[in-house]
């Protein structure tokens, strides 16, 4: 079987499987990014405006998760998660090994990691917000919540967009690490194909090309979003 047929969509071809796995990769990254958005927003808010213990906790979180290898975090959640779930199941009288769904291990790990980076992005964007515009909002009688919703958050979001684009790129590439849990995302599917056909090179090359396509397209999407968001910004 020729290399092209091997990667094609015909009988015995792996094309459909690889594309499906690429979709899993995208979903995984999206879930991780969404979770990271929540965690990052909370951590940034904690560092900016929280009381001392919360500030310390948020600082510890961002420092630890940005300093420790992502692979190690995935191992922690993969092995530690099933141990913890097993413990909880034990309380309810269920004995034995409890597996955690790899997709959610991956999504939570990527969420934790990207949240730490997103927190830094938000913090930087908040520091860059023009205080005069906040003051103008106070001067027209807006209360705190309204200022946050109508002025601060939109301004922070705009400034944060390029940084969030970077985090998304990192996250997409990091999602390949989740393959160690056995989740059939893009890289894992390539591994499976490589193993069963004994032709690793075309499979990894194809996986690489698909990743490149995804990162390039999302780069363009972020560039467009930035151009839209920059409307009105000097």
């Amino acid at each position: 079987m020729g290399t092209l047929a091997l990667l094609g969509f015909g009988p015995g071809g792996w094309g459909a499987a690889l594309l499906g796995a690429a979709a899993t990769t995208l979903l995984l990254a999206l879930a991780g990014f969404a979770l990271g958005l929540v965690l990052g927003g909370l951590a940034a808010a904690g560092r900016i405006a929280g009381p001392a213990p919360l500030r310390l906790l948020a600082t510890g979180y961002t420092t630890l998760l940005r300093g420790v290898p992502d692979l190690l975090v995935i191992y922690l959640l993969y092995f530690g998660g099933s141990a913890a779930l097993g413990g909880i199941a034990g309380w309810f009288g269920h004995a034995g090994y409890v597996g955690v769904p790899p997709f959610w291990v991956g999504a939570v790990a990527l969420g934790l990691i990207s949240g730490a980076y997103q927190a830094e992005v938000f913090r930087g964007a908040y520091a860059a917000v023009d205080r005069g515009q906040i003051e103008a909002a106070r001067a027209v009688g807006m209360h705190r919540g309204l200022i946050l919703r109508r002025v601060t958050v939109p301004l922070v979001a705009r400034t944060a967009l390029p940084g969030l684009g970077n985090v998304w790129q990192i996250l997409l590439k990091d999602s390949a690490l989740v393959s160690v849990t056995g989740l059939v995302e893009l890289l894992r599917q390539a591994q499976v194909g490589a193993g069963s056909t004994r032709q690793p090179f075309p499979f990894y090359l194809t996986a690489g090309a698909l990743y490149l396509a995804i990162t390039t397209v999302s780069n363009l999407a972020f560039a467009r979003a930035e151009a839209r968001a920059r409307r009105g910004l000097p």
Partner: peptide, 13 residues
């Protein structure tokens, strides 16, 4: 592209 893909391409590929 992910570093892990680069690594696998070089070592296994």
């Amino acid at each position: 592209t992910p570093l892990l893909v680069q690594l696998f391409l070089i070592y296994y590929g």
